[in-house]
Design a protein around this nucleic acid. Structure first.
Lengths: 213, 213
DNA sequence: TAGATTGTTAATCGATTAACAATC
DNA sequence: TAGATTGTTAATCGATTAACAATC
């Protein structure tokens, strides 16, 4: 597995990817670390170091091929694969994520949505019938699901995760405002929207303070 | 303003806050850094150091008062204030955020939602009429809005931000999949949902690789 | 007082940046 | 070849952790 890649580098990869998509849409086919540095607001050394973690994608005296680099980063992130995704919790956030087109473009295919509320089960969300979480076990046995998105209230988040993991789910994207714990071997990303809002609130306060008011 | 607080510390504050809320709901009224360390998965030294950035909230030989500590962190994050919030973009994400009850509990009051699509303007979203972005200028002159949430497609994100800033908005919470740039003096938090999904995809790949398959 | 736990300094670790040799 | 730019090592910076004196 060669060298362990640092989490800091991994978190920057999507940003590189977005930037490269933009270059591609502008028909730019080569780019240097110093130009990226200016446009992305990162240090050029850092960019070269980051990209070099995965192999020498660049060429001295020339720079990086946009197409090649984008393809490599996609491969590293696993965006060259297709994923079947389910949503747990048919509230507004769950429904919104189910319909988020941008994910589909990159191979994340949201196939079904579940809830435990009898009032919601059976109703239609974006052309899909909301399924009962009670059917999750048999559902997951049949279908090949890669990722589950947890959009339940926080009280249900951990037990949902436990259930999903016990049925073999290997990746959880958690939107409930609590950290979910899983055994080693299962991937989790906690999103924590309100954390981000609180940080914004802090920053706002600092800005106002800065003006001397 | 004493010492500059590091961004890493700020990002942990919401997590402390969530944890303290939980303790409070369990009627626990004191806590030590070592207990927090076990339950939060952070290093005890780090916790004491973090909390000490803002003043000596603890008491030697005793620990921290849950109530006092929670109140202090709320104050630091600015959660003791009330904020008026508007949403730009009445798509599914915008609507979901508008209805997200958890924010309201902490003083973030989403008052109106805007869109530039004539088909959406005038329709009702959660009991609120979608307003035309063209009316933003006069609207912001009248009302006292603190935070704008950008939920537009990425093509509109930067121009929305520019507009909002020119009308005096001081804090932007951006959900469009692109970084928005603003002048110094304006606070921005970029959320980037797909970045987080890509990182999950990477982690999943690593986990699968780890099993030797 | 003795025990516990904070606040804080010193040591370590990891991440970023600068510098430059390698090479296209 | 000369110029440009990467890949990579060395230097710096910042964040985490360990250790312990202060003190409740």
């Amino acid at each position: 597995m060669s060298e362990k890649i640092s989490p800091a580098v991994i978190r920057r990869l999507p940003k590189y990817y977005r930037y490269l998509e933009e270059l591609e849409s502008k028909k730019i086919d080569k780019i240097s670390s110093s130009q990226m540095s200016i446009e992305m607001g990162l240090n050029a050394s850092q960019i070269r170091r980051d990209l070099n973690c995965f192999g020498g994608f660049g060429q001295q005296g020339y720079g990086y091929s946009v197409e090649k680099l984008k393809k490599e980063i996609a491969r590293i992130l696993g965006l060259d694969q297709r994923y079947n995704v389910i949503v747990i919790g048919a509230g507004r956030i769950g429904q919104a994520l189910m319909g988020y087109k941008n994910f589909m473009l990159e191979g994340f295919n949201v196939v079904d949505i579940f809830d435990n509320d009898p009032a919601k089960v059976g109703t239609e969300v974006l052309g899909r019938e909301v399924m009962d979480v009670a059917r999750l076990s048999s559902y997951l046995e049949e279908k090949n699901i890669d990722i589950a998105i947890i959009c339940t209230p926080k009280e249900y988040a951990q037990q949902s995760a436990d259930l999903l993991v016990s049925f073999g789910i290997k990746a959880i994207w958690n939107f409930a405002p609590t950290d979910v714990a899983v055994r080693r071997g299962v991937a989790v990303e906690n999103v924590h929207l309100s954390d981000s809002l609180y940080v914004l609130s802090y920053k706002l306060k600092e800005k106002i303070k800065g003006t001397g008011i």
